[in-house]
Design a protein around this nucleic acid. Structure first.
Length: 278
DNA sequence: AAAGGGAACAACCGCGATACA
DNA sequence: ATGTATCGCGGTTGTTCCCTT
């Protein structure tokens, strides 16, 4: 018996359709092609209708997920770049498990992909550190040790490439410049209600910037990636100007975290196995 | 070479929000 | 106002691949 044939379940439907055959499990190439063709004709909406008109024995929900997480032409298939990993770490430290919100700032990446990255890589690190992934201890590790280390690697890689192709922003080379545009100004969640994650806001957090500003600031650091989203706000220049003078503070903080004095495991904390690629 | 275990990725499930009749 | 369908999100599970023993 073909294993694929065992992937059928049954789902109750409304109206006269009492029970219809519903296929589950991995998608075949043929199913993918059917779905792609149907979406090309009708557009990516009305998923239940799409599933039926494509002749797929899949739920609309399953079709949508397949499109969003795998078939969409804008998706990137390669590993997460260092920049993307850094951005995920940072955004998660502010927004928690709001994967879709985080994914909005990583073009070509899905919330599922980011979620998987977090579960496999970051939670593994938390386990190694013997602390809870949601603990302030772990967040401090990420913010003050991991992020600086990764930012340093990103900048070194960027510097290498910029020797061949200089950029106007290549003078932004210290962690404070990388990190502060995102944290020092207080990352504001425009639709936040509880904001339970926001326990470590810098003294400069009264200065708020909309998301577009955050992304733009990020692009100041990684200009080679091109714009991520949204227009540049006029407030950007103000925000970035406000950054001047905070470098010392953040660097001091980075040395005075909970690991501070001993620093016994700093080398471990910046171990390469945490990062994909490079 | 085979088995076991872990990592990475893909897919499903449950639930809440929203749209619409 | 209410019921139903659809969509989107986060959590969880299943599958495959790869490395180690």
């Amino acid at each position: 018996m073909d294993p694929k044939e065992s992937c059928f379940g049954y789902a109750a439907q409304s109206g006269e359709e009492m029970m219809i055959e519903v296929r589950k499990g991995p998608w075949t190439r043929e199913e993918d092609l059917k779905l792609i063709n149907c979406i090309a004709m009708h557009g990516p909406a009305h998923w239940t209708y799409l599933a039926r008109s494509a002749g797929l024995k899949r739920t609309g929900k399953s079709c949508r997920l397949r499109w969003v997480n795998y078939l969409h032409p804008d998706l990137k298939r390669e590993n997460l770049t260092l920049q993307e990993q850094l951005l995920i770490l940072h955004l998660h430290s502010h927004w928690g498990n709001r994967w879709s919100k985080i994914a909005q700032h990583l073009p070509g990446r899905t919330d599922n992909e980011i979620k998987n990255y977090w579960r496999t890589r970051v939670q593994k690190l938390a386990k190694q550190l013997n602390c809870d992934v949601n603990s302030s201890q772990f967040r401090d590790t990420i913010r003050y040790l991991r992020l600086p280390a990764l930012a340093d690697r990103v900048q070194r890689a960027s510097a290498q490439s910029s020797t061949a192709q200089p950029t106007p922003s290549s003078n932004h080379t210290d962690y404070a410049t990388v990190y502060l545009p995102l944290t020092g100004l207080g990352l504001v969640d425009s639709d936040s209600k509880s904001d339970s994650m926001e326990a470590h806001v810098s003294p400069a957090s009264d200065l708020t910037c909309p998301d577009e500003v955050i992304v733009h600031s990020w692009m100041d650091v990684f200009p080679q990636d091109g714009p991520m989203t949204g227009p540049m706000s006029p407030a950007c220049s103000i925000c970035n100007d406000e950054l001047e003078g905070f470098d010392g503070q953040i660097l001091e903080e980075s040395n005075g975290g909970w690991l501070g004095q001993g620093g016994e495991s700093f080398n471990f904390l910046i171990a390469n196995d945490f990062f994909i690629g490079d």
